[in-house]
Design a protein around this nucleic acid. Structure first.
Lengths: 346, 346
DNA sequence: ATTAGCACTCTCATTTAATGAGTGCTAAAG
DNA sequence: CTTTAGCACTCATTAAATGAGAGTGCTAAT
């Protein structure tokens, strides 16, 4: 375990490096933080910290910079959260006006706000459909046996999909199915419904065709549900002024698939989660850190939001921001879900 | 008017500069293009071209680079279109599989393809709703008098909107309205319908409340309908290796509002349109060029697509690409619109 | 009208030297 | 035994100096 002095010095290094992006030396620590120690003593201590893996040398005779391990210790044990100012909180809450009643609006707005306030890149993964509750289905038959399905979830998410029926179904039949679904399956989690359908497909009680149709309706491609804002903010960071490296990072940020994977791996544990550098387990973004939290609808976690930025991130602020945003979005979405379908027109 | 020699030399300069991004001098032109002229002659000629405003000096004793006027003349009078290869055409057409039956998929795919093939930034403005034809409306009543409206256009575009009814409408009434709309207004352009509604609002024949509701349903915010892909490709261009400048361009590319405005200003004239540098009439992107064309559904123009990239763009290729893509998207969308609603379930 | 020749200009890459922050070690002081 | 002062040494960064190269503009000759 680190002794008090080492903690103080580690903290000073991390703090300074986050602020300046410059390797920090013993002299400047002695000057800025009144630790009552001479540079030489600090030097010895820093050498110890380096041996223990918390700090690193870019080259001999440069100051120290924190390693992933160093940041990790800082985040876990040294950092104090820096709460958002009242203004900021007010500003955020004001953004979610009542008129914002579509999930995609809320997603866009949230990623935008995350990015604007943090000056890093904000992201949010849309509510996972599987975890949503089914509320209502509409079917509109088109030409050539195509059917437009409109799926509405308890949280007010509307999902359109055009499906192909191999044979043209008579209208009564369609209506029959529709009623069955809306009557019997309403308020069930979508995941349950999928299971139900695939069971039916196995048993082959009903017409198989119809259950295949249902299967299509309740199957969707999970991609494309990530909202990202403020990618350019990466360019603000001095450590990415080198284009060659930055470009590959930009490319990574364009790969939604990649980010979605990393994000969904971000376990839905309580509170805010921080992944630093290599901890993201993804080569392409190993120079970035990720601060995430889950948001909920009616208490059940449905999605992830957060911020991606340089390893040298202002964790103390960002953690608070992400926490607050998760709360806010949860409130907004829960609220929205209460104003959703109770009765169905026609 | 430029004489034959000047044209040849201007063409050589533009061509060379597009290929290399380096100011081009008299010597290299004399060497590469067998014009049968000595460097000195070419020098004189280039000096003339400069005086006429087609070329510019970055500084004394550097080669020439084309001005906007130079590019303009090149595009209008000198350039020959370079058709896409058969492979490329096949590759593009293959991308639009039959399974692609949602407008937003087509938009994403199109901007993606534009970007991939050109190596610049691809963009497409979704079909203008006002110019679309109304096909069908569904209404689902929610709690608190909120109503989910699902608007389907002739081109298969589905638009959801939650609207607030000030007083709760009885279900029969809602159905009545719905039938009225679907029976009487189907196949009319949406613009006509909006006019019709505001007329009704003025006359106040029917219940005003209901027409206000209709007004809400048929009113939408035009924003957010721009699809952009391949922004990073800007970083590939050597002239943007200077971060300071590039950043502001990136910022401009993030401002959808701005781009939408520039794009919609791009008149729906026949064929491909090229805007070079300052011609975009927008300071923030005055170092970029825009190549656009309109795409159609059933022959009527409904949207714009194109490419945005450095002024030093490979116009001869890009113009062909944009032209071909406009044709392809028009076909795909027209095709889609034919498989749309004929009869309505329930 | 065209071209060869030449002086001149400006950029860019490379070299060289100076600067300076920072370390590591040792020996003295507390 | 811990802390500190002192000093030699190491690199990175910066600035100035240098030279090559590309290109121009002008003049005089073809």
């Amino acid at each position: 375990m680190l002794d008090e002095r080492k903690k103080k010095i580690l903290q000073a290094v991390v703090y300074n490096y986050i602020a300046t992006a410059l390797p920090v030396g013993s002299r400047s620590i002695a000057k800025k933080y009144k630790l009552g120690l001479s540079p030489a003593t600090i030097r010895n201590c820093m050498a110890d910290l380096e041996e223990l893996g918390y700090l690193a040398h870019p080259h001999t005779s440069a100051g120290r910079i924190p390693t992933d391990k160093g940041y990790r210790f800082y985040v876990d044990s040294l950092m104090e959260r820096e709460d958002l100012s009242l203004e900021e909180k007010a500003r955020i809450e004001k953004e979610y006006s009542d008129r914002m009643n579509r999930i995609d609006q809320i997603m866009e707005e949230t990623s935008q706000v995350l990015s604007l306030i943090s000056r890093y890149t904000g992201l949010i993964l849309a509510p996972n459909l599987e975890k949503s509750i089914f509320h209502h289905l509409e079917l509109v038959s088109l030409e050539n046996g195509r059917i437009l399905s409109i799926l509405i979830t308890g949280s007010g998410l509307v999902k359109n999909k055009i499906i192909e029926a191999e044979e043209i179904l008579p209208e009564e039949r369609l209506e029959e199915i529709l009623n069955l679904i809306n009557d019997r399956l309403s308020n069930l989690p979508l995941k349950r419904i999928k299971e139900f359908i695939s069971d039916q497909l196995k048993i082959k009680t009903y017409s198989v065709k119809i259950w295949e149709l249902m299967n299509q309706i309740f199957t969707w491609d999970g991609a494309e549900e990530l909202y990202l804002r403020g990618r350019i903010n990466i360019l603000e960071q001095p450590e990415f002024k080198d284009l060659a490296r930055t470009k590959s990072i930009f490319q990574a940020l364009e790969e939604k698939r990649l980010l979605v994977e990393v994000l969904s791996r971000s376990t839905p544990s309580e509170g805010v989660r921080v992944l630093i550098g290599k901890e993201t387990k993804c080569r392409k973004i190993r120079d970035l850190s990720l601060v995430t939290s889950t948001y909920r609808i009616n208490g059940r976690p449905v999605g992830v939001l957060g911020i991606i930025g340089p390893r040298r991130m202002e964790y103390s602020k960002v953690v608070s921001l992400v926490d607050f945003m998760a709360e806010t979005v949860s409130k907004v979405l829960t609220n929205l879900s209460h104003t959703t379908i109770s009765k169905v027109g026609e």
